[in-house]
Design a protein around this nucleic acid. Structure first.
Length: 555
RNA sequence: GCCCCCGUAGCUCAAAUGGAUAGAGCGACUGCCUUCUAAGCAGUAGGUUGCAGGUUCGAGUCCUGCCGGGGGUACCA
């Protein structure tokens, strides 16, 4: 029973009651249905009677009784309709109806829970987008996990999703990168150098410099600083990008498209964009710089596009980038940024308007930052300190499954405290194992059945009726929630809710496992329970897949 | 100063257009393995949802003010 169908039934009940004069005339209200927290309140509940009562100046309980008496649904769908509390109407689904979910799962397999909500809308999600000037750190890991799971859940909800990584391979950070390598290179060759302003002090820079010396010796020493820096940038950033890709591979994140900032310059798109803005007089010169009139479009002040020294800002190429994305025909583009870019949102939306695009098509999801601790002591994530905890190191310590699950447990606008020691120590207790264990247990049951040569025929509908105990019904109810959950996670951009569901489903299974032996001498019951268990495994697999976590056969 | 996010059990966090008795995990304590995996199950303890008002039949959720933490407020990215 979907929310939609049930709300139609309630709507009909209200109209019929009104037609027969049991309710005075009223303005038709919006019917809301919710999943009650408490089991005894049924599978669905509506507060419509309470809402109507104040309009009708009637007792809510009485209104509820009238509406409930007009609810017309087959008994094998709704087993009971009750009035409770201050006037809630509670609906209990019939066991026959709940059992149908098993046949649906069996038929749709890995597509179960998917829906047409997204209507094939083309959505692009851009995330991680790290500067290729150093290894990915823990914060990137959080956005990689979040962005990828959001993409997966939106795909399951019927959106056509593309994942994109924007490579910031142009400008200040790249120069800092090259200058840092150059400085380390000269230092290793015993030359005194002034440390570059904004240089990266991370150990990986020293490693790169050492490798350059071992491969090329002192051959770059004689170059001018400028030449050497440029040379090192060109040599090293592609390698850094490769290593970033490898790390993303380890967390199971695969991008469909990689767009390069320098390519936007090379192709002339940045210039085209700026000319376009100048022509429509949204850009103007002042104090030697080129400004965008963002204040005209809702930003608090105007922003610089080209500095007085002639260099474009990051903002300039970012506008060109968003124009590029919009021209690729997406219905919606989602940018996932760290919360430290919050001040940038109004600016980018203003730029969208200036470019003539609907700013509503750009959705920015801000993620609170990850704070890193080691044994209770804060660890800075600055690339400059050299005390850098990389995503690779984290993956080495806690594993991919635990890392992804951990990152996804919290809502994106809640800051994440990540204690390395704690994650390491507690990893065997991590809820991810609880969920995976349910999957492994099911696999074990199925192996056991196979070894015993048990008949694994699909049960008939009559045999499935043997599934009628409390734990069995609860488990089926949980299975039936998946589609609704997927739609919720997709619409609210809240993949973290998948983890809660996964744990609830695992819990329902573990309870079932304790109370109901699957493989027994009773052939029909065994067939029915094996069916239930296989369906549960299918749904666990789907959820784990959406989370990007593996579903082990054994643990 | 102004803008955004957060404040829920000892700890880390959930909680659907505002709903009925605010939930998990970890940690603590008590039981349960001759039977498909005990990485499990059942139970106990733990709360004035930061504070004060307001709206509502009804507030963790919405509004106002305050307190505390974080972030932003660049011709950085």
């Amino acid at each position: 029973m979907s929310r939609e169908k049930l709300s139609k039934i309630v709507d009909e009940a209200i109209n019929k009651a009104a037609q027969e004069g049991k309710l005075p005339p009223f303005k038709p209200p919006r019917i809301s249905l919710e999943r009650p927290k408490r089991k005894e309140h049924g599978d669905w509940a509506t507060n419509i009677a309470i809402k109507l009562a104040s309009q009708l100046k009637m007792n809510p309980h009485a209104v509820a009784e009238i509406i409930a008496s007009f609810v017309d649904a087959p008994e094998d769908v709704l087993s009971s309709v009750e009035v409770a509390g201050q006037g809630f109407i509670n609906f209990h689904l019939a066991p026959e109806f709940l059992r149908e979910i098993l046949f649906e799962i069996d038929e749709r397999k890995e597509k179960f829970g998917s829906s047409g909500l997204g209507k094939g809308e083309r959505v692009q999600i851009e995330f991680v987008s790290a500067n290729p000037v150093g290894p990915l750190h823990i914060g990137h890991g959080r956005w990689a996990a979040f962005g990828d799971s959001l993409a997966r859940v939106m795909e399951h909800a019927g959106y056509n999703v593309e994942r994109e990584f924007y490579i910031n391979d142009y400008g200040t950070q790249m120069r800092n990168f090259g200058e840092s390598i150059s400085a380390r290179y000269l230092q290793l060759l015993k030359q005194k150098v002034e440390w570059p302003e904004g240089g990266y002090r991370g150990n990986y820079i020293t490693e790169i410099a050492k490798r350059i010396i071992s491969e090329h010796g002192e051959s770059f020493k004689s170059l001018s600083d400028q030449e050497r820096t440029n040379h090192f940038i060109e040599m090293e950033y592609p390698l850094m990008l490769e290593s970033i890709k490898k790390t993303l591979d380890r967390v199971g994140v695969h991008f469909n498209a990689w767009t390069s900032e320098r390519e936007l310059y090379r192709s002339g798109e940045v210039n085209e964009t700026l000319s376009f803005l100048e022509e429509k007089e949204d850009a103007y010169r002042n104090e030697g710089a080129l400004w965008l009139r963002t204040s005209r479009y809702g930003d608090e002040k105007d922003r610089v596009l080209i500095r007085s020294n002639g260099e474009p800002t990051y903002f300039a190429s970012d506008i060109a980038y968003h124009r590029n994305k919009m021209n690729r025909g997406f219905d919606r583009i989602i940018d996932i940024w760290g919360a430290d870019h919050h001040g940038y949102v109004a600016r980018m939306k203003a730029a969208m308007k200036a470019m003539g695009y609907d700013p509503e098509k750009l959705e920015v999801i801000l993620g609170q930052l990850v704070k890193l601790y080691r044994g209770g002591e804060p660890v800075t994530m600055s690339k400059r300190t050299g005390d850098l905890i990389t995503l690779d190191e984290l993956l080495d310590e806690v594993g991919t499954d635990a890392a992804r699950y951990f990152f996804l447990q919290r809502s994106n606008d809640s800051p994440l405290d990540f204690d390395i020691e704690f994650a390491k120590k507690e990893s065997p207790e991590n809820p991810v194992y609880y969920v995976q264990y349910a999957h492994a247990r099911i696999s074990s049951i199925l192996r056991h059945a196979e070894e015993k040569g048990t008949d694994t025929e699909r049960p008939s509908r009559r045999e499935v009726e043997l599934l009628n105990s409390e734990p069995e019904m609860d488990l089926m109810r949980k299975l039936a929630e998946l589609e609704e959950l997927v739609e919720f996670c997709a619409e609210k951009r809240a993949p973290h809710r998948l983890t809660t569901y996964a744990e609830e489903l695992a819990s329902s299974f573990h309870v079932f496992y304790r109370d109901c032996r699957v493989v027994t001498e009773d052939a029909p019951l065994t067939r029915a329970r094996l069916f239930l268990v296989e369906c549960t495994r299918e749904v666990l697999r789907i959820v784990l897949r959406l989370l990007g976590v593996s579903a082990p056969e054994r643990m």
